[in-house]
Amino acid sequence: MIDLSTIKQHCNIEIDFTDDDNLLNIYMKMAAQYVSNVTRRNLYYSTEDEDYKNDPQPLLVDELIIGAMLQLIGHWYENREAINIGNITSEIPITATMLLQPYIIYGV
Rank of each mutant, 00 (worst) to 15 (best):
V38S: 06
Y27L: 15
Q101E: 14
P93E: 15
D49E: 15
V61T: 06
Y34L: 06
Q101V: 06
V35N: 01
D16W: 08
E63N: 09
L24K: 04
A68K: 01
N22R: 14
S36N: 02
I13S: 05
N84A: 06
R41H: 06
L4A: 03
K53A: 15
N37R: 14
K29M: 09
Y27A: 02
E50R: 11
Y27I: 01
Q9G: 01
D16M: 07
Y27C: 06
D62K: 01
K53T: 08
P56Q: 08
Y52Q: 05
N22C: 08
R41Q: 10
M30L: 13
Y106H: 13
K53S: 11
D21W: 05
P56M: 08
L64C: 04
R80Y: 04
P58C: 02
I26P: 00
K53M: 11
V108F: 05
L100I: 13
W76K: 11
I88Y: 06
L100R: 09
H75Y: 15
M1G: 08
Q9Y: 09
N42Q: 13
Q33C: 02
D19P: 01
D55R: 03
I85D: 12
F17V: 09
M1P: 09
T89C: 04
W76A: 11
A96V: 05
D21A: 00
L23I: 12
I26E: 14
A96E: 05
L64G: 02
I13G: 03
Q71D: 15
G107Y: 10
I83D: 09
T6E: 14
I105H: 08
Y44W: 06
L24N: 01
N87A: 07
Y103K: 04
N84R: 13
T6L: 14
I66K: 12
I104A: 07
H10W: 03
N79F: 10
Y77H: 11
L100E: 05
Y106C: 08
Y27E: 05
T97W: 10
N25S: 13
R40Q: 12
M1S: 06
N84H: 12
T89P: 00
I15K: 13
A82F: 14
N54W: 03
T97C: 01
N42R: 14
Y77D: 07
S90R: 14
R40F: 10
I85R: 08
G86S: 06
E81D: 13
Y103N: 07
N84W: 06
I94N: 09
Y44S: 00
L70D: 02
M98V: 10
